[in-house]
Amino acid sequence: MLKRSRTVPLPWAAGYGLARTLLALGTLGTLVFSDATTLFREVATVGRYPLCQGVNSAGAFCQVSEDHYDAMRWACCLVLVVAASGWRPRFTAIPHAYVAFSVFTGIAIPDGGDQITWILTLLIVAVALGDPRRWHWQPAPPPDSPPSNRRNRWALLGVSALTVARIQMSVLYFQSCVAKLPHAEWADGSALYYWINNYDFGAPYWLRPTLESVVDHPVGVAAMTWGPLILELALAAALLMPQRARWMLLPAGVSFHLCIAAVMGLWSFALAMCAGLLLLLTPLGHDPDFTRMLRRTPRPSAVPAEKKDPVEAPVMAGTQP
């Protein structure tokens, strides 16, 4: 009997580590720049946050009295700083996910960024628990020789979790695009005129004159309204595209969310979505090798730079006579 095996890329690379850092920084910004009186307050028809009911009662802020919300807030910030640094992802992934859950379920002003952060950090736990590296910035570890069944199982679990995260992001962009289409303002191309001039989420005063000069023109406002719909639809279909097309979509998607952050001030949302874009558009096991970039090791000019392939681990799939 001849053994037949298949390979999967090792998921423990600096690419997914950068996504972890962005997710942690987004939540960290929410906790650092918002005090307890802003985060935990009465919401009309709902009640006073945190709402310690059902599953939500497991959140960190439900474990302390109101007088200690600030102390717990800074304790969560410490967890997020450690997670963002990339140290020992195997040990910091679960605390990071717990803080993301506590913020999403506990604060009175959550947004879509907090929700996607919680979902992605939970999925990343399945990746990080098998990560043997000290820092998630380090290159992917070499495959075991001979292959280790334990590492192969962790690699398969991690790749499966990242695949679910990619599908989640694809569905998110598809739903975001399709949900806008029934509204007349999005269909006729005028929606961004109202968003730019909105007093709560509109453009800041220093940016308003420039954007108003664009949205006051029919072609300008139509381009600003329909452009995001086209981009969201392309991102939703990214998994069906070749990798070269995904690389071209990555800067477009990141720029799109940074523009939203600059106009509407949704920076934690932008960081969460940029992390999701990295998981969606980069190859599984992508390793940009940040340690080499930081060392600035010069490459010989006579040797062309080659794209680094993801490290793969064999996974036994069955036998064949």
Score class of each variant (00 low, 15 high):
Leu162Val: 02
Met169Ile: 12
Thr225Trp: 00
Tyr193Lys: 06
Asp111Asn: 08
Ala275Ser: 14
Ser255His: 01
Leu120Cys: 12
Leu271Ser: 06
Ala184Cys: 12
Ala313Arg: 10
Val215Gln: 05
Arg246Ser: 11
Ala155Cys: 13
Val164Ser: 14
Thr121Ser: 11
Glu212Lys: 09
Ile260Tyr: 00
Phe61Thr: 02
Glu232Pro: 01
Pro95Gln: 01
Asn56Cys: 02
Asp35Cys: 09
Leu120Pro: 09
Leu162Thr: 06
Ala252Trp: 05
Leu18Gly: 12
Leu129Val: 04
Gly26Gln: 07
Val171Lys: 10
Ile109Val: 10
Gln63Leu: 12
Arg292His: 05
Phe33Cys: 10
Leu279Gly: 15
Leu172His: 14
Leu271Gly: 07
Leu172Phe: 15
Val311Tyr: 07
Trp137Phe: 07
Thr225Ala: 02
Ala161Tyr: 07
Pro143Trp: 07
Thr210Gly: 10
Leu250Lys: 01
Ala179Pro: 11
Leu192Gly: 07
Val159Gly: 09
Ala60Leu: 06
Met264Trp: 00
Glu232His: 06
Asp216Lys: 08
Thr117Gly: 10
Ile260Val: 07
Thr7Pro: 12
Asp216Thr: 03
Pro321Gln: 08
Leu156Lys: 01
Pro218Thr: 01
Ile196Lys: 05
Asn197Cys: 05
Ile116His: 10
Leu157Asn: 08
Pro251Phe: 03
Val82Phe: 02
Pro147Ala: 08
Thr210Lys: 07
Tyr199Leu: 13
Leu239Pro: 07
Glu312Thr: 15
Ala19Arg: 02
Ala223Phe: 01
His136Gln: 05
His183Tyr: 14
Pro204Ile: 02
Val214Gln: 03
Val254Gly: 09
Leu192Met: 15
Thr210Leu: 10
Val46Asp: 01
Pro139Gln: 01
Pro314Thr: 11
Asp200Ala: 15
Leu271Met: 13
Leu249Glu: 03
Gly130Thr: 05
Arg295Pro: 06
Phe61Ala: 01
Phe104Cys: 14
Leu28Asn: 08
Pro132Ile: 04
Tyr193Ala: 10
Val32Pro: 06
Leu31Ser: 00
Glu185Tyr: 11
Pro242Ser: 08
Tyr69Ser: 01
Gly158Tyr: 04
Arg296Asp: 15
Trp74Lys: 00
Leu258Ser: 05
Ile94Tyr: 08
Pro298Tyr: 03
Gln175Cys: 13
Gln53Ala: 05
Trp118Asp: 15
Ile119Phe: 13
Pro50Ser: 03
Glu306Gln: 12
Ile167Tyr: 14
Ala44Lys: 11
Leu258Met: 04
Asn198Lys: 07
Asn56Lys: 02
